[in-house]
Each structure stands twice: as structure tokens, then as C-alpha cells.
Computed example of a mutant assay.
Amino acid sequence: MLHVFWQFFKLGWISFGGPAAHIGYFQRHFIHKLGWMPQDRFASTLALCQFLPGPASSQLGFALGYQRAGLWGAVAAFIGFTLPSFLLMLALALAGNAWASQPAALAIVTGLKLLALVVVADAVLSMARQFCRQKTTLTLAVLGAALLWLFPGLATQFVVLIAAALVGIALLKGEPAEHTQALGVNWPFLLLFFGLLLLMPLLSLTDTAAIFADFYQAGSLVFGGGHVVLPLLQNTLPETLSEDVFLTGYGAAQAMPGPMFSLASFLGAELYPTSPILGALAATLGIFLPGFLLVLALQNSWHALASRPLMAGAARGINAAVVGLLLSALYQPVFVSSISVNSETAAPALAAAAIGLLALRTLRCPVLVLIPLFMLLGFWL
């Protein structure tokens, strides 16, 4: 368990760039380097996390920890990956937002956003090589990315995934397995998910419980990751939080390593100024817990279904579509936020990203070496 915590804790400090970049970090570190999970199971788990509410990359990390060391390994993975951003966002809530406008901070963020572009591009290439070997799967990936570029949004994402599953069932069916896994939903976790969703608003007798209930509801209903959670929280949380507070936390969360949902840590501290640490803990646990309960409840049945011929075809289609989702994210928000096309620095930044991709993918340069280099590059840009 300590080994799992340490591996995720290290990544929690350097995983800049949002969910798409986190998937790239996880794939490179846990699949290619440590071999914690086969590539096909990694892709299947990622597909499940794309369907569920909550933060897909954090749910994927939770599942990786579970695969390695059971339930406590999953908890260690969550704490390790989330703790750095939790501490940073809590410190921001306690200290104010004056640091965010400092030139040094802006330069570092510029460089790290560019590194995120490199990491996501590497993840797209790696997963495309694994899951888009046929004309059908390559077509699904490219068309899925094209649809998301043209019609960005959660609805399009679901249409792409469902359409890819149907095409996979029709054209990519697998051979019957000699031994099929028994389907099994982990009912205690599923019942706990719905029980908390229904009962917590009725049991919010203290400020801490009320904060937990509000963020648990948001975590249960948000699909599409950290960028979607902001409007949902604005409609869910008390009006005592101003729009400036929301936007400050949202902007800081994008600049932090680790999950975008660490925005909850900042908002929880702001909601409970007399005990900000307790408020941050309640909000953070509340927003992450729903997705984790669903992963624990459904991942075994999902993998068992994926071993059946028809569902194996659906899984192949979904895996190809997930490559398309990553490809779409490579442009928006990663490329758009990393390179200002109309700026004089666009060409040097793009050149640096291309060289960084070469160093990461071909020369096997460790990400830990690239981080300080891209931070210095941010100052130059």
C-alpha cells in the first residue's frame, strides 16, 4: 500500500495538464514502466471511467491502485494523487490569490502547459498504435475526434462512445472465450452510492455535513470532467460564494498538478472559514467519493462483459473512440491553452513541443527531466 501511495504521490506533484494529460502519465508510468495492468484492461477501465460521472482520470488512478493492492491500494492511490493539489489549493484559500498574478508563476504555468501538450500527444500515439490497427478502428477514432471538434460537448461524447460500441458489435466481434467471467455487480458499493445521494441532504445537520452533501451531489451528477463541474457547483452551492471566488479557484485548479476536481478543496475552505481544513476535507471527499463507489461497484461486471464476443467487439469500438476523445482533447483544451497561435511565441513553442515529444517518445527522456526544462522554457517564452 505504501508503494502505491508513493508512486501516485510522486505523480501528483508533476501531473500538469488536466485529465487527458493524466491518462498519458498513468499509461507511461504504470503500464509501460511498472506493468501494473495489461494495456487492454487499462483501455477497458478507461472506457468505463469515461461513462461514469466524476473525474475520469482520478477514477482510473483509483482502479489502478485497486488492481495493484485491493481496496486499501485504491485509497492509497487516491490520497497520493490528490494530496499535492489538495495542499496547494488549501494554501491558496488560506493565503489569497496574490501569487497567481506574479510573472514567475505565469511563466512556470506557461511551460508546464506546453509539457502537457507533449504528454497528451504521446498518449494519443501510444493508444492509437495499440487500438487502431484496423481500418474500422482508425476510422472510429478519427471520426470521433472530428465530431468532437465540430460539436464539442458532453452529448457528443456520449454519442461517439455509443455509436462506436454499436459499430464494434457489428464489425469487430471477438471469438467466443473458453472461460467467460461471471457477471457481478458489487451491490454494497452501489447501494452506498445511492444511499448517500438520497439521504445526505436530509442528514446535513452540521456545516461540515452540509458541505459534504452539496459536493457529493455535484460529484454524482457531473459528466465530462473538471471543466463541466464549475457551472454545476455554481448552481449547487450557497450564494455566499461570489463569482470571483469561483473563478479564482477554477483558474488556480487549471494551473495545479493533479485532478481539476481539487477545485473542491479551495471552495470547501472558502465555505467554512472558521475551520477551512475541515471544510476542504469534506468538500474533497464529497466530490470524489461518488465516482469511486461506482468504479468499485461496476468494474468487475464491465470487465466480465468485455470478455463476451459481442461485448468484446463493443469494447474494441469504445477503445478506438477513446483514442478519438484523447485526440480531440489534444487540440481543445490542451493545444489551445498551450500555444497562442497569434502570438510571436507560437512557432518557438510548437518547435519546443515537437522536440519534447521526440525526447519523450524516441529518446526515452524521463518526464522528471522534462519538467524543469519546460519550466525554464516558460520563462523564455
Rank of each mutant, 00 (worst) to 15 (best):
L2D: 13
H3I: 12
H3C: 09
H3D: 15
H3A: 15
V4G: 08
F5V: 10
Q7W: 14
F8W: 10
K10Y: 13
L11G: 03
W13N: 15
W13K: 09
I14P: 07
S15W: 05
F16K: 09
F16I: 10
G17S: 11
P19I: 06
A20V: 06
A20K: 05
A21T: 04
G24C: 06
G24H: 03
G24W: 01
R28K: 13
R28H: 12
H29I: 03
F30D: 09
I31V: 15
H32D: 14
K33N: 14
K33H: 15
M37Q: 12
D40F: 00
R41I: 03
R41P: 02
F42S: 00
A43V: 03
A43K: 00
T45E: 09
T45Y: 12
T45F: 10
T45N: 11
L46Q: 00
L46P: 00
A47W: 01
A47Q: 01
A47E: 00
Q50L: 07
Q50D: 09
F51I: 10
L52M: 05
G54E: 04
P55D: 06
A56E: 14
A56K: 01
S58H: 01
Q59S: 11
Q59M: 11
G61D: 07
F62M: 05
A63G: 09
A63N: 04
L64F: 07
L64R: 02
Y66N: 12
R68K: 15
R68C: 07
L71E: 07
W72C: 13
W72I: 13
G73R: 05
V75A: 15
F78L: 15
F81R: 06
L83K: 08
P84Y: 10
S85P: 09
F86P: 03
F86I: 05
